[in-house]
Simulated assay, not measured.
Amino acid sequence: MKHISKKIFYSFFILSITFCFSQESDLGTWYMYFGNNKINKKWNLHNEIQYRNFNAAGDLEQLLIRTGIGYDLTENNNNILLGYGFILSKPYRNGIKTENTEHRIFQQYITKQKFGRLYLQHRYRLEERFLEDDFRMRFRYFLGFNIPVNHKEMIPKTWYGSFYNEVFLHFNSPVFDRNRIYGALGYVISPNLKIELGYMNQIQENRNRGQIQVGFYNTIPLNNKD
């Protein structure tokens, strides 16, 4: 029985990749890595790479790289963070592939709660966006939760459901930018490693687009002496 979870996980991973590469071009695919690594008891390093495609792979929509330094106001619960992001976008305009870059500074506050099996997270983020020919400010509110399935806690070898909703608001007109709704199946590999396969629907003013998402999460501490 001890090998069953490993076999299920490997099957889950292989099927996720196969599923993503079988999609038609009207369904995008995002491959994502998130690192949130403790430097010591109070400080943490955020590091993130997202490779977003218009299709399964090869037609790049956006490459997003983010990093930041965070500080725990209370241990593992309330965290403030200052970060920087670089975004390379390759949208289609009138059927022609274009390219533009963005530099982004952001500040965020994350608070977490636990109610029974429900792991809840609120994230409030303010962004200063330096575009090639414009400057914009944006506010984002993220509400997410995880629910373990085969165990009561998020321990290794746990399957869990992951869900979130995130709304984006401009400081100028139009105020509404977009809304993201996400659902996924996740697996806890170890105390500091998780993987998720999910679907996200992004709603914009004149556009509604689905995204298959494969996410890998790393919380391995940088200093194990704490």
Results as ranks from 00 to 15, higher is better:
S5A: 14
T158E: 07
S25G: 01
Y31L: 10
I17F: 13
N179A: 13
Q121A: 14
I39K: 00
M154S: 10
F176E: 12
F163P: 01
E75K: 13
Y51N: 11
T111W: 02
F139P: 01
G210I: 01
F12I: 05
R125K: 13
N76Q: 09
Q202H: 05
Q202N: 07
L143Y: 14
P148D: 15
G95C: 06
H151S: 14
Y84G: 02
F12M: 05
N40R: 05
H103M: 03
S173Y: 11
K225I: 10
F13R: 05
L15E: 02
Y160R: 04
W43Q: 01
R129H: 01
L131Q: 05
Y141I: 12
E153W: 03
L45A: 06
L120F: 15
Y217P: 01
E48D: 14
I195S: 10
R180M: 08
Y182H: 14
G35N: 07
Q211V: 00
F145H: 12
G198N: 06
Y141W: 09
Q211W: 14
L185A: 13
K157N: 15
L169G: 01
F145Q: 09
N224S: 12
L120C: 13
F171H: 12
T111S: 05
F163S: 11
L81H: 02
K114M: 05
Y71P: 00
R125C: 03
K97V: 02
F145I: 05
H46E: 13
S190V: 07
L222A: 06
C20L: 09
F54E: 09
I49C: 04
G95M: 08
Y10N: 08
Q211K: 07
I87G: 00
I4S: 09
R140E: 13
K7T: 14
Y187I: 06
H122E: 13
K114E: 09
Q211F: 15
K90M: 07
P174Y: 15
I155T: 14
I96Y: 04
F130Q: 02
N223V: 06
R207M: 01
S190M: 03
N79R: 01
R180V: 03
L185W: 11
K6H: 14
Y33F: 15
Q62G: 00
G116W: 07
D133R: 02
L64I: 12
S11I: 09
Y199W: 14
Y141C: 07
N40P: 00
V167Y: 04
L27I: 12
N37H: 06
K225G: 04
I212M: 08
S5K: 15
Q108P: 02
L73G: 04
R207I: 00
Y160H: 08
R125S: 03
R52P: 01
L82T: 11
T29Q: 03
I212G: 00
N79S: 12
M154L: 15
F9C: 11
